[in-house]
């Protein structure tokens, strides 16, 4: 699925938009601090990896990690774009770009900028799509005041 997957049928359009919706909600729910909603986006057996660290096994483990890493944040703004969606039956892969701005409670005059890529795998579930693999790699980060 590492080639352009052209949208040809109406079903392709529906799947494409539904996958994008799941991925956009991942960012907006994190920014809103709604981790119950974040958890609902993951399959129970989901795996997650951030910044090339250890794989987190299970949707609960991924979300627990997200809660902990987000705890110091005062404001989060994940500006992302889904670049590619490849759909093969009930499975999908996606590549997204992100530039995030994050301020911290103990340093509200400083913004942390994170620039990176997400590589996701999704499965069709509950009438929509859920994330089964979330792999984030960062290429640049800085703190600005």
């Amino acid at each position: 699925m590492n080639v352009i997957t052209n949208v040809i049928t109406a079903a392709d359009v529906v799947d494409r938009l539904a996958v994008e919706e799941t991925l956009h909600r991942y960012w907006s729910h994190i920014d809103a601090g709604n981790f119950t909603a974040v958890r609902a986006l993951f399959t129970d057996d989901a795996r997650g990896r951030y910044w090339g660290g250890q794989w987190l096994d299970g949707g609960d483990a991924v979300v627990e990690w997200l809660i902990n890493v987000s705890a110091p944040a005062l404001f989060m703004h994940h500006m992302g774009k889904v670049y590619r969606v490849g759909i093969d039956g009930d499975r999908a892969t996606a590549h997204s770009h992100i530039t995030a701005h994050i301020t911290l409670r103990d340093a509200p005059e400083t913004v942390v900028v994170s620039v990176g890529n997400y590589f996701d795998e999704l499965r069709r579930a509950d009438g929509g799509w859920k994330i089964s693999v979330k792999d984030f790699s960062q290429g640049w980060s800085e703190a600005r005041s």
Partner: peptide, 17 residues
């Protein structure tokens, strides 16, 4: 219209990636 819009956009995103 939707199909053309998505596929044309995909080409532009693919250029960047």
């Amino acid at each position: 219209d939707a199909r053309d819009r998505i596929n044309a956009s995909d080409t532009l995103y693919r250029y960047c990636s």
